[in-house]
Amino acid sequence: MISLNVVLFVSSLMFFIGVAGVLIRRNVLIILMSVELMLNAANLNLIAFSRQSGTVEGQAFALLVMGFAAAEVAIGLALVVALYRRKDTIQADDINLLNG
């Protein structure tokens, strides 16, 4: 059977790939996808702990996290489109108006 350590290993690997995507890519779209990846790693952990403790609360909370992720993606993509209209770029390094 699946031991909890295996699940934690896989989800931590996925989380760190998401962190790497946020930190090293310039494209805002890919940064958004990496954030989604990190949320999925957290969901995996929630489901694994729910299975270990035998309660359904983890799965219910994972469902709520999915809903929040959908809302976040809608707002993020609208921001990307607005950014492209206004600044004509979606590269994170080019958006440096707040750079002192």
Binding site: M1, I2, S3, L4, N5, S12, R51, Q52, S53, G54
Partner: peptide, 20 residues
């Protein structure tokens, strides 16, 4: 994180049936 997991904190075989 690998150092934390090396201490085998969570090595219980995780398979309890769901309960309500």
């Amino acid at each position: 994180f690998a150092y934390t997991m090396k201490s085998n904190l969570f090595n219980a075989p995780a398979s309890v049936a769901l309960t309500l």
